[in-house]
């Protein structure tokens, strides 16, 4: 892994596979034990810096850090000095003075995690930046699909709903395609970002398109971001055309949703309570995957440093001239 996880594009397919293997083998098992804690990040400090409301992402990062034995501090914008007018830069400089090892940032503006990375020595993990991306959600979704389907190559996924406002859609289009999956975006034209075709996904309007896919990925209708922009004639009309229920699903089709769900808007109540959705498996996966990410970001950095030091030592040794050593063979 790189020093930071700012975008799903920071990871190669092999790196994704390797992180998810770590999550499956080490961290799913951990959650089923009586003692749900390992000493791996003992003494490390993780700061979760959240400028937007969040339940599952923030609890999941907090618990992931604690189960790795790190010291975890949660900073919520609404109850911090941000309310007193402190800029993001000054908040980060202040927190950086505690020498954290990882800063997890959720922010309403695209690019905030990269900005944070400029002012801290810590590893920065993007936990959602405006409409930008949500790489850890993407990884946990790929993980959930792998657990359910096994092989991802050629798997067909429809991402349905408010794609315009969705950072999850942006990360997942990229991440799913990277894993060899085929992606179709299903939404009214007004809820698709301009130029979205360039991301390599097919476009469809109307739920008929669900007949051709293996997986249905629903997005929350982000009404708080619509700001009366006139994107839909009415919510009722959207529901009539795009609310997904069990009647839209074929045999073996599974439904994912990043949460929080709006019952009766993008998902009907019956489907929300049906075992055909993998929503709670996604939450469980989220914990294991975030533990794997934090573990790997720290371990890989240590290994890179050791490799660099090793190379430097080797270069110094070469300069110093050949050294003669006797090897004692054991008989």
């Amino acid at each position: 892994m790189n020093k930071h996880l700012l975008s799903i594009n920071d990871l190669s397919r092999d790196e994704i596979e390797s992180i998810l293997t770590t999550a499956a083998k080490d961290f799913l098992e951990l959650s089923k034990r009586d003692i749900k804690k390992v000493p791996t990040l003992r003494g490390r400090t993780v700061i979760d810096l959240f400028y937007e409301k969040s339940t599952r992402t923030s609890t999941s990062f907090e618990l992931a850090g604690k189960r790795l034995s790190a010291d975890v501090i949660n900073v919520k914008a609404e109850s911090s000095a941000v309310g007193k007018g402190e800029s993001l830069k000054d908040t980060v400089l202040t927190l950086n003075a505690y020498n954290p090892d990882i800063i997890v940032i959720r922010h309403p503006h695209v690019g905030a995690p990269a900005f944070v990375a400029r002012y801290t020595d810590a590893h920065v993990i993007n936990a959602g930046d405006g409409k930008g991306g949500h790489p850890t959600q993407c990884l946990l979704d790929i993980f959930s699909l792998k657990q359910e389907y096994g092989e991802l190559e050629g798997l067909k996924v429809a991402i349905v709903g408010d794609i315009l406002h969705s950072r999850v859609a942006r990360s997942n289009i990229a991440g799913f395609r990277k894993m060899g999956m085929e992606v179709t975006l299903v939404a009214p034209p007004s809820l698709l970002p301009r130029g979205v075709e360039a991301l390599g996904a097919d476009i469809a309007h109307g739920l008929d398109a669900l007949a051709d896919v293996d997986v249905v990925y629903l997005l929350r209708m982000q009404q708080e971001r619509h700001a009366d922009a006139g994107l839909m004639p009415s919510l009722r009309e959207y529901i009539a055309r795009y609310c997904v229920g069990r009647r839209h699903l074929g045999k073996g089709q599974r439904v994912l949703h990043p949460g929080p769900i709006n019952r009766g808007v993008e998902i009907d109540a019956e489907l929300a309570d049906s075992p055909e959705n993998l929503i709670l498996q996604q939450v469980e996966a989220g914990l294991a995957v975030r533990m794997a990410i934090m573990y790997r970001i720290i371990v890989d950095a240590g290994a890179d440093q050791a490799a660099a030091e090793g190379e430097r030592d080797a270069a110094e040794a070469a300069e110093a001239g050949p050294e003669i050593k006797n090897i004692r063979a054991v008989g």
């Binding site: 080490d26 390992v38 000493p39 791996t40 990040l41 573990y295 720290i298 371990v299 890989d300 950095a301 240590g302 290994a303 440093q305 050791a306 490799a307 030091e309 090793g310």
Partner: peptide
Amino acid sequence: LYRDDVAARGSLTIR
């Protein structure tokens, strides 16, 4: 997960 050389010099084996 219980090693004492996580992120320390010598963790190349973990890598």
